[in-house]
């Protein structure tokens, strides 16, 4: 074989070996394992950690809430309408991208920090699905939020876990309570609130007759726990059991405190007194428009003024009332209290 040909051959073989060596070094060994791609990439992509954990994960700690949800409208498997925990609470094991949840700032992973992400603004949250907009199918329950409950937080009335379950009066109706038994337990109440809960002139306690049962029960429970601060009421309530509270609330709720004159004339007067925003829940004459809110009927001006000051000062706390009380100055507080203070029990 001529020498120049042999040299050419050697060069070619050398190039071939270099090509093999380079390919071995540069191309991943799993390339072409399954096709024209790096085979290991499949398992690498599959290794990512899931962030949404599913309802069973939530149930393991939040069994009560899960149970409420599983019996409510947000769990309707027959129509495939299932609003799972993480739709509203965000991913159980992951970041909170928009920081839209309370407690999210304390740590990205739940339950590592033992704080559940609770949506801060339920009005903004619920309307994501329930605001009436063009394109939304008619089967979806929809509201026009401007015309629904005066733009209050949805969670004020609805239990978000079971939205057709209402808070307040309906919950109390389910809880019950025996008015007759309650009357026998009111000896400590009468000196300040009157024997039937009608606070006549000279008595220092507010009128309880005709008040919402749920509101009364909640108030007694709050005094007992110290959430509502009043030294006299703390003493009285601290000896009451849960069933005592239900019975007493049922008794005073069953007593009569008839309304004074109502209607359009009174509403106009309420507006003039700066009480228009009160009337949207508590009614123009003090009789609440919804079952969830307390009656102002027969309350004294002093009591109402004191209650508003407590909300403004933080002794009492309520998502709506605290904000309203803080927005009123002393003159406004006095005007509102004077207006509702005029609606006496008949």
């Amino acid at each position: 074989m001529p020498r120049h040909i042999r040299r050419l051959l050697l060069v070619l073989i050398g190039l071939g070996l270099v090509a093999v060596a380079v390919r071995n070094l540069v191309v991943d060994r799993s390339f072409y394992e399954y096709g024209h791609y790096r085979g290991n990439a499949v398992a690498e992509i599959a290794r990512d950690k899931p962030k949404f954990q599913g309802t069973a994960y939530c149930q393991s700690c939040h069994a009560a809430e899960y149970d409420t949800w599983a019996h409510g409208l947000h769990y309707s498997p027959d129509t495939a309408r299932i609003v799972k925990c993480e739709v509203c609470h965000g991913p159980g094991g992951g970041r909170d991208p928009g920081q839209n949840y309370l407690h999210a700032a304390t740590g990205p992973v739940h339950p590592g920090n033992l704080k559940l992400a609770v949506p801060a603004d339920t009005t903004a949250l619920c309307t994501v699905c329930h605001e009436q907009i063009v394109g939304r199918p008619a089967e979806q329950r929809q509201i026009v939020s401007g015309e629904h409950a005066g733009g209050q937080q949805c969670s004020l009335c609805h239990d978000a876990h079971a939205p057709l379950r209402f808070k307040g009066a309906l919950a109390a109706a389910a809880a019950g309570g025996n008015p007759a038994a309650g009357q026998r337990k009111t000896a400590a109440c009468a000196p300040c609130h009157g024997p039937t809960g009608v606070s006549a002139a000279g008595l220092i306690g507010p009128t309880l007759a005709g008040q919402n049962r749920a509101y009364l029960a909640a108030a007694l429970a709050a005094y007992r726990s110290g959430a509502r601060k009043n030294p006299i009421m703390l003493g009285v309530a601290s000896v009451l059991s849960n069933s005592d509270i239900e019975d007493i609330a049922a008794f005073f709720a069953s007593q009569k405190c008839a309304a004074g004159p109502g209607g359009a004339a009174q509403l106009a007067a309420a507006r003039a007194a700066g009480a228009a925003m009160c009337a949207s829940c508590h009614g123009a004459n003090g009789v609440p428009t919804g079952a969830a809110w307390p009656s102002l009927l027969g309350q004294s001006t002093d009591y109402l003024q004191g209650a508003l000051r407590s909300y403004a000062g933080g002794d009492r706390s309520h998502v709506v009332m605290s904000a309203i009380a803080k927005s009123l100055d002393d003159a406004g507080t006095a005007k509102v209290a004077a207006y509702y203070g005029g609606a006496a029990c008949k």
Binding site: L8, L9, G16, G39
Partner: peptide, 26 residues
């Protein structure tokens, strides 16, 4: 002679190609 040599060269190339093909994955 040239064709013989060229044939050998082709064969060598084919061997290299086979070696390339016989990487672990495939």
């Amino acid at each position: 002679a040239f064709l013989t040599c060229f044939g050998s060269a082709l064969a060598g190339g084919a061997v290299a190609a086979t070696a390339t093909a016989l990487l672990p994955g495939p």
